[in-house]
Each structure stands twice: as structure tokens, then as C-alpha cells.
Nucleic acid binder design. Structure first.
Lengths: 222, 222
DNA sequence: ACAAAAGTGTTGGACTTACACCCATGC
DNA sequence: GCATGGGTGTAAGTCCAACACTTTTGT
């Protein structure tokens, strides 16, 4: 099998893309989009296909984050699921596929809440995926994948704050990001200020660097 | 499928456990021990069973480090291999199984050398596994799994040096390890000095901590 | 006494953090 | 003017790399 965890940031909260299952087992429960790998497909191909079929969503890149093969994870019989992670720059519109009752972005906090039922071992998978994202964002430049093509440093900072769940000192964040050569590339332009006014911010795009050395530490602020 | 990368340190060099294939495809080439998952097995169970069958080796813990499902990785047809990593405290004796011409620990440097033929995509898998080990040893307490139950800090340091491939300042290493609460636990005893004399070192055992905060940085010495 | 390995002390520099302060825009 | 968010400056503290130095053993 191939399941996918798609993250996006919206409203200062980290969201995950889920589908509501129409059929047994776990009918009515939320689940990660996914399905079976067809002959000739790589697991990543299958993940991308199932994601499109079930939610209408396409992602630029999918990274493998683990394989879950515990016997008993599926009541229908032993299966092995290769799980990939995708990142989107915004909460895009979602269209539920034929075998899904619904598809939507849920805040991760809500998806992992006690009263939300997740199918199979998807609670465990999602929990691992969140931990992995929090770690990777510290060491790698993947945070730009959660931003639009052109973004301000405040937008990038809000991605970190949403993923880590705490505020970051803006001046220090700015210095760290700009000091890390190749992380972001300045564009000449400046963005329009927000609805509350404020100084217009410079625009940047993602650079070519993939590893952040030194990392952006996720110490709790204050 | 389930393949396994077993690491051990010997003679100041990181070694990996390989089997020499007796049958086609890739007859005569080195390969990671592994095989097919049988019904009712988890991939980890299968990895442990195949490891024992092919090499006679048992490991305490196996950690999943990835799944490789590129169509074409096996000339016989599409397969998916879940790869696990095992760590041993020493170069144990190895017994080749029935369908292997030989089984042995090879220095990683030699296994990844140009003139060593590795079956399937096992060069890629091994390369990824080495990168992962170098990263994990920095953040987690897994280095103790490459040491005997009781070890000196010099032994632990030599593990890091073998994995990273460069020397580490012994005094600073000592401070970092002892400062990280729960990483190692002092035993009352002291070890016998080496053949060249020297002051006898204190003995330690692994503690309960799994994550190293702050990490042991792998900066090149000098 | 000498070599070798374990272990302690110390100093300079790099980096982080926290916070004060200035700039530009909308209302 | 004032609030809001962008951006700069800076001082205190922390941490690490480097290396000098002491301790304890075998030969």
C-alpha cells in the first residue's frame, strides 16, 4: 500500500489532509489518503495517483517517511504501507473521490485529538509524521515548501511557529535565515503590507540549499 | 521483502555484514542479508529470521531505515524491500547459510569501493544507511549499541571516530558525554589498561536516555 | 625514567538569546 | 498621531574547540 501525509499551514495552524471513509472497515472515520500499489508503479507513483484520485490534490514532491507493516494494522489481513509526506504552500480546495465520503484539511491538533477517530494505524503514522516534520524543518530547508513561491520572512517564520507550536523571536529568526547562505534568495520587490498596515516586507524565494548548518534551533521561546 | 544492514566496529573501522550470493541474479556479488516476508510476519520479524538463516547472527534491536520499491530494482520483477538497521557491539563470528556462498563483515569503505560489486540497489541502500547512522549517532544514544555492555569512554569515542571517519578531541568528548544526563551510567569498577600501559579507565554502561540534547557535533577536528 | 592512555583546567571565540530601538505604512 | 508589522543594533550569557597540564599504569 501507499499512504500519504500532506501538510499545509493555514491560519497559524498546521493542517493535514484527510479523507472520511465511506466503506468498511472504519466507515465514517478519517484516514490518510492512500491505496494499493499497482503493477509497474513505484510506491511514490501510487501515492501520487491515490492522492489525486481521492482528494484532487497534487503535490510537487513526495518524501518517504516510513513503512508500516505491523500484522493486524488492517483487519482485512496483513498489509504493508509505504508512507510519503507532501507539503503544500496553502490550504487548497479539496474534492472528495468516489470511495470517500469527504476530504478536507484538518488542524493537526484536532486530527490527533482524543475524540477524532482515525482509521487503521493512521493516528500513529500521523503522529510520527508530525514529529518528523518538526525535526526536518530544523535541519533542512523544507519550510519553503510550505510557503508560496514568493514569500516574506514573516511568512516563513509563521511556518516554523505553526509547525513547532510556539512563537519565535523575529529579529533573530531573520538573521539566522539570511546568514544561512543559499536558504532564501532576495527578490528586488517588496510585498504589500497587511490589512493592519505596517512596513512592507521584502520578498524572497527558496534557494538551492537543502541542509541547514547550523540548524534553526526549536528552543522554546522565553 | 526485508533486507538488513548490520553494523559493527572493529579495528577502528566501521564494518557491515554482507553475504556473497550463490545464485542468480547477481551470483557472486555481495548483498545485504534479507529475503521475503512470510504470511503473518511483520517486516521486522522477517528481517530477523532471514538474518539468522543467512548469517547465523542475531541482533538485539532492529530499526527501520527505509523502504525501497523502485520498479526495476530487481531484474526478476517489481519488489518492495523494507530495510532495517541492526547494531552489534563487536565483529561476531558469521556462518553462511545454505543459499549463500559466504557471509562476512566487510569494512564499509571497502564495501562501497568501486571494485566491489553489490547486488540489486544495495549500494544505494548501504550508502543511505551509513549516512543515517552518521546522523543518528549525533542526535541519539545509539552509539552505546555499538559497544559491549560495559565500556570505557575511550571505547565509546572510538565508535564515533569509526563512524564519522575522523578523530575527536578526547577531553571535550568526555565532558559532553558526562554532561548529557542519562547517556552513560558510571560503574564503580575500572577496566584493565591496554597492552601499551596507560591509566586504567572507568567503566560505564548505557543509560536510559535516547535523545542527545544538545547533540554531539560531528565537526571535523582541526 | 619514559611512553602511553586517562582525565582536568582554562582560554578565546563563535553563537544564541533577549530586548531596546528605528522605519514605513494604513487609519 | 498612533497602532502594526518590518527591520537593525547590542550586550550578556552559553557553549564549544583547542591545547596545556596532571595522573596512573606498563616496560
Amino acid at each position: 500500500m501507499a499512504d500519504t501525509v500532506v501538510f499545509a499551514v493555514g491560519g497559524d495552524q498546521l493542517h493535514v489532509l484527510l479523507v472520511r471513509r465511506a466503506n468498511a472497515p472504519f466507515a465514517g472515520a478519517w484516514a490518510l489518503p492512500g491505496g494499493f500499489v499497482e503493477p509497474g508503479e513505484s510506491p511514490e507513483d501510487a501515492a501520487r495517483r491515490e492522492l489525486l484520485e481521492e482528494t484532487g490534490v497534487t503535490v510537487r514532491a513526495l518524501d518517504q517517511i516510513g513503512a508500516y507493516g505491523d500484522p493486524g494494522r488492517d483487519p482485512r489481513g496483513p498489509t504493508l504501507s509505504v508512507v510519503h509526506r507532501g507539503l503544500l504552500p496553502e490550504l487548497v480546495d479539496v474534492q472528495a473521490g468516489t470511495d470517500a465520503a469527504a476530504a478536507a484539511f484538518l488542524p493537526v491538533r484536532q486530527a490527533l485529538a482524543r475524540n477524532t477517530e482515525l482509521a487503521f494505524d493512521h493516528r500513529r503514522i500521523l503522529s510520527d509524521a508530525v514529529d518528523g516534520l518538526r525535526a526536518d524543518i530544523e535541519q533542512c530547508s523544507i519550510a519553503t515548501a510550505l510557503c508560496p513561491p514568493r514569500f516574506t520572512l514573516s511568512q516563513l517564520r509563521r511556518v516554523y511557529e505553526a509547525v513547532w507550536g510556539h512563537v519565535i523571536d523575529a529579529p533573530n529568526f531573520r538573521r539566522k535565515v539570511l546568514m544561512t547562505e543559499g536558504y532564501v534568495v532576495p527578490l528586488g520587490r517588496t510585498a504589500a503590507p497587511g490589512p493592519d498596515g505596517g512596513k512592507p516586507a521584502h520578498l524572497y524565494r527558496a534557494g538551492k540549499r537543502v541542509t541547514l548548518t547550523p540548524p534553526l534551533y526549536r528552543h522554546s521561546a522565553h
